[in-house]
Amino acid sequence: MAQTKTPTAETPTLVVEGVGKRFGDRQAVRDVSFEVARGELLAIIGPNGAGKTTLLSIIGDIRRPDGGTVRQLGPKADKRIGWVPQQTAVYSKLTVAQNLRLFARLEKVDDLDATVQRMLEQTALTERADDELGSLSGGNRQRVNIAVGMLADPPVLLLDEPSGALDPRQRQRLWNFITGLTQRGTSVVFATHDISEAERHADRVLVLADGELLFDGTPARLHSESGAAEGEDMEQAFVAFLRAQGH
C-alpha cells in the first residue's frame, strides 16, 4: 500500500468541474469533477477505453470538452499545465539537449541554459546531453519526454501511462523522479491501467469506467470499499469494485 502523503496546501491547484466529452454516439467522459492539491500524486485508473486519456487531454488543453471547466488556482495559476503523452513526443533525430532547448524556447522560459541544465540534472541525463534521442533506451527517452513537460516549471503535470514501456528498473527510476517532483510541490496526475502501480505510488485514485467517475479516494479506501475478500490484492479489489458498480 502507498504511504499516504499530506498535500502541502489546502487550496487546490487544479479544479475540474462537470467535464464531459462525446465522440459521435460514444460518451467518452461524463460529467467528471475533482480537485488536485499542491504536491499531490493522483492516479486515474480504469479499464481500457474508460476515458482516462480523453480526460487527461481535456485537462491538458489538447481537446476541448463539450461541457464543464478546468481551472488552475494558486500562485502559479497563469502557467501552462505540463503534459506528457503516453508515447514519447520528442524529436528522435535531435540530441537530448537540442530537444530540451527547442521546447524551452517554445515555452519561452526565462533562463534557457539554466533551465536545460536543471532538467538534465533532474533526469540524470547530463552525460547523455549530446546523444541523439533515437539512440537512447525507452526509459531514458521517457525521462526526456517528462523533462520536456516539466520545462516551464508547471504547477500541474499530467502523465499518460508514464511507465507503460519500461522495464522494472527503469520504472523504479521514473517513479523516484516523479516523487521528487511532488515533493517540490508539483501536482502530478497520471493515468494508468496498472492498478498495483497506482496503489504503490498514488496519494489518491480516481476510478473511471465508460467515462464515468466511480470512485475518488485513497487506494486503501478503494480496497476496503471494493468488497474484496481479505488477502486479495489491489487488482482483485479493483475488479471486484468495477463488478459491484455494474462494469
Binding site: D61, I62, W83, P85, A89, V90, S92, F103, L106
Partner: peptide
Amino acid sequence: EENTFARLARGLV
C-alpha cells in the same frame, strides 16, 4: 510520427 504535433498544438506553435 514523432507525436510532437499535439505538444506543439497546445498553444506552443
